[in-house]
Design a binder for these strands. Sequence first.
RNA 1: GGGCGCUUAGCUCAGCUGGCUAGAGCACUGCCCUUACAUGGCAGGUGUCACAGGUUCGAAUCCUGUAGCGCUCACCA
Length: 1026
Amino acid sequence: MSEITLAKSYSPSEHEPSILARWQAAGCFHAEAKSAGEPYAIFIPPPNVTAALHLGHALNNTLQDILIRVARMRGMNALWVPGTDHAGIATQSVVEKRLALQGKRRTDFTRETFVAKVQEWKDEYEAVILSQLRSMGASCDEARTRFTMDPVCTAAVREAFFRLFQDGLIERGKRIVNWDPVSQTALADDEVEMEEVDGFFWYLRYPLEDGSGHITVATTRPETMLGDTAVGINPRDPRAAALRGKSVRLPIVGRVIPIVEDDYVVMPAAMGGDPADAKAEFATGFLKVTPAHDANDFEIGRRHALEAINVLAPDGSISDRHGWSDVSAHAKQFVGLSREDARTAIVAWFKAQGLLESVKPYRHGVGHSYRSHVPVEPYLSDQWYVRVTDPRLSASALRSMNPAQFDGTQVSSQGGARGGDGELTFFPARYAKTFQHWHEGIRDWCISRQLWWGHRIPVWSRIVDSSAPPSASQWTARGAAEMRRTLPDGRIEIFVCIPESLDATLIPALVESGFTQDADVLDTWFSSALWPMSTLGWPNPARFAMDGMLETFNPSAVLSTAREIITLWVSRMVMFNRYFLNGRLPFRHVFIHCVVQDGFGQKMSKSLGNGVDPRDIIATHGSDAMRFVLTQISTATQDVRLPVDVLCPFTNETFSPTTITTPAGQVVAAPIQSCPTDPTRKMVTAFGASTGAVTATTEMPLARNSSARFDIGRNFATKLWNASRFALAQLGTTATPAHDVVPIALADRWILSRFTRTVQRIEESLAQYQFNPIAEALYEFVWRDFCDWYLEAIKPTVKSDPVQQAVLRAVMDGILRIMHPVMPFVTEVLWTAVQSVPAMSVRGLDLPASALATQARWPVPSTALNDGQAIAAFERVQALVVAIRNIRGERKVNDRRRIVLHALPEIMRIIDEAGGIVETLAGLERVEVVASNRPADAVGFSFAGCELFVSALAEALDVDAERTRLEAIIADRSRAVGGFEGKLSNPGYLAKAKPEVVEQTRRMLSEAQADLAAGRRALELLASSV
RNA sequence: GGGCGCUUAGCUCAGCUGGCUAGAGCACUGCCCUUACAUGGCAGGUGUCACAGGUUCGAAUCCUGUAGCGCUCACCA
């Protein structure tokens, strides 16, 4: 027996802290470039420092931890780099919201003071996140923790920006951007969310300048008409010829604008437009062209050399100070109105003037800021762009795709193949399409953000008079990169980008020469895109004592992330890593995990109060339980629903809350719930708290969310705990360790075979990033095979059988190893106990000892252990035992009552071969060879086509119950016989089905027939005996 | 509108390249507090595999179409 005694049940909160301390003390999650083993790296998708980690993070981190722990156990040089992301807009807006509660705004502070406030927030949440990772058991290399704005990552951002600038891949452009008038910053295309909005089409009349009538334009944004600089018509429109060369006088403003002909303009269906085009239905054939406020109009403006007149201020109000100079007296009244008010006012004006032809309701998608959730304004502004449309970036990303996953014919690389080409593989494969289509339709990436929190753009600029341009070489000669552009007024704007190493010398010189630094910061994804490089010290690992890290751990093995990240992040990492590291990929595999939704298929969110906090689950169920269940629900085909329950703060019981439906149609927990055992006591739900409708008090406290789904994990940990406790009690501590034990008993050979197959199944699933089958395989093996069958089978023999003890010890040890990556805490606690028992090795199962389970070797069972005959034999035993138990169950035989089995010699052989386990498992007093006359009180049943009897079930035979039972069997078997006969009488089946399939059907038919005959005979005997 | 998924037991989900009488967990019913475990054991009931066609000896599985749901991209004429 082990010297370590285990408590009666596993208490996670009691053990988790000490296990964490042991791991930390052992430093076993730290990796070095020079360590032994094949490198295996994973970079954590750095969570935003805006908030604590949610269940989606817990899921992703659990899966990554499983991968990294298995790799480590396999002897690989496993590195898992943790870290956090500064999340520019998100973090800044969280802090701004907080300040707003105190009645303050960002601009009430200096930039430095404000950034310091954000920094405080960041420090707080970074600490929370890192502690959460620890408590989830994430085996990250904490010493290598990075933050996207720390000096190491900043160095990478500076280098990347400088090189892209120098290589002509960064440009300054006045283009239409997605403008968030609340955050007052530009947004990238993928930061804009489309929302369906009920709007209108307003049909506005614009008089022709020559007084010969009017044309009508259709618009959903009438307020932008103040900036119209043309009206477009399709050259194929029958009306075009008559209008050629004419102009219209823009109402309100009085501006005379040309009618231009452009193919882009959709013709109304009546005029020959494509009826399938939804636009043709609403179009008039005349398009108001507002180059400063519409991306498509901007293009039309370029084609026809139109002026772009910006009539909006950055906050979205009508303004005459941002490029609008021909403000008429009529137009003055609209200046200063918000865009919403301006819309109403302008429509009213048109109506009053009789120029509003009609209004039609129209439901359409409108872009909203993913941060402030207000409609995004297409806005003409100067921004920095990365030219990701350049083949050096986007085409390179496409070439990296695994050809087997490429849709269509992959363009071969120009100038010869490079490392990394064709090496990027997606799991599940369907997501490769998202990646491909994104790059095929990619547009230049706007990287400047009008924020204070982020990487400041390292560009200094100055506008000079064109008559006296300074010499070009001044800054480039000193190591900087330079770019110029001519402004509309003829002056020249000079941009100088400097590398970080020259900051000290060049910044003062630039300032002295009248240059000022760009006020903006970079898009957060710019620094995130460098994550697999920056965390390893690129461009100069030695500078940060990370020699060799980049070469060893980049490319990493796999990136594990969510769907939407394919375009936001995966794409950019691939482009940058390949660009800066000569074609090398940041990772070879991309694994996309499923999304955890609430029980109604809705995304978990703070505002709906339908999220489950991983900290709560760890507190109530333990980290292992959470991890197991998250692994179990990680399926590849669909997102998973996790019904969210409420944890009663009075009784700690979990219950399904009553729900309400919000006006938006979402199903949420009602704000107030009653305690299920004492309905007089009430509590506030997370939804109630988030809407602010109710406030939690001591009498009516806030109830936490939970989910009964996690009970499975807790129960499983307890099961493993008790199985170990039992196993330890069976093992002798004084026995001389025997070596290379060869098991003989059927149960032993069977459990070793099952173990071997389980390891194999786990490895196959892992290779495909299929996590749910791993959880299923573990559950089935540990609970069903090991606990339900093996431990029960060996109970009478193990104490006196040293060979069986060796097998039990080895399988127990093996179980802890294969369970460890999924449930690291409980296995680590049990590891110490199991390791304290002298090892008796089993041939073919090498399990080297180690101080910690975390450091143990992944088992590599010999294929010789996989004994197909033992499996088949044991399965027969199981079927026989189940058949006997079935009768016991139906007859309600007390579990303790021992009964007698009467069997034919051929069944006796199976029972004998099993070595007593049938007797044990079926609760048999003895087995007798069936005589010609069956025992008087016997109950017949059939097994494998043979007729068997059990007797001594009770003091007297219940004839009625027996008749009912037999009739049910006869009905069931008749149906089966009919089915098989039907198949076998089909000539097509016999001719075309595979012979082994036909053979199997024949065998099953004969068994069913035998069973049927046995049942009928038993029924006859029953009738004659009464 | 384009693309990608999903629809299997009351609930949550597995069922890959077609072939045992379609499975698991939870929930439910009955019997067991048997010295590992009641967070447990044994047994049990539960399905027109969304619908309609097609291919095939044979379809939950492959093909086509329909409906519903979800995600995603595009679209503010």
